[in-house]
Simulated assay, not measured.
Amino acid sequence: MKLKRLRDHPKLLEQAAAWFASKWEVPVEAYKESMELCIRQQQGIPQWYVVLDEKQGIIAGAGVIENDFHERRDLTPNLCALFVEENYRCQGIARSILDFIRKDLGEMGVSKVYLITDHMEFYERCGWKFLTMVRCEEGELIRMYEADCCGWDVSLA
Rank of each mutant, 00 (worst) to 15 (best):
F20C: 01
F20A: 02
A21V: 07
E25F: 09
V26C: 06
V26E: 04
P27E: 12
V28Y: 02
E29R: 10
A30Y: 14
K32Q: 15
E33D: 09
S34R: 05
S34N: 10
L37P: 00
Q42A: 15
G44C: 03
Y49F: 14
Y49C: 10
V50P: 02
E54G: 05
E54Y: 00
K55I: 07
K55Y: 13
Q56I: 00
G57Q: 14
A60L: 08
A62F: 05
G63D: 01
E66S: 04
E66W: 13
E66Y: 03
D68Y: 09
F69A: 01
H70Q: 10
E71L: 12
R72N: 00
D74E: 14
T76P: 12
L79R: 01
A81I: 05
F83Q: 08
V84H: 07
N87R: 13
N87V: 12
Y88S: 13
Y88F: 15
Y88L: 07
R89N: 05
C90S: 06
C90P: 00
G92A: 03
G92K: 03
G92F: 04
A94M: 06
A94D: 00
S96D: 13
S96E: 14
I97Q: 02
L98P: 06
D99S: 01
I101N: 11
R102T: 09
K103T: 05
K103H: 13
L105E: 07
L105Q: 02
E107G: 15
G109D: 03
S111F: 10
V113R: 02
I116M: 08
H119R: 15
M120C: 04
M120A: 12
E121P: 03
E121I: 04
Y123D: 02
E124Q: 15
E124S: 14
C126R: 08
W128L: 04
L131V: 02
M133Q: 13
V134T: 14
V134A: 15
C136V: 04
C136W: 06
E137I: 08
G139H: 00
G139I: 10
L141D: 07
R143N: 14
R143L: 04
M144I: 06
E146Q: 06
C150L: 12
G151L: 08
W152M: 06
D153F: 09
L156S: 12
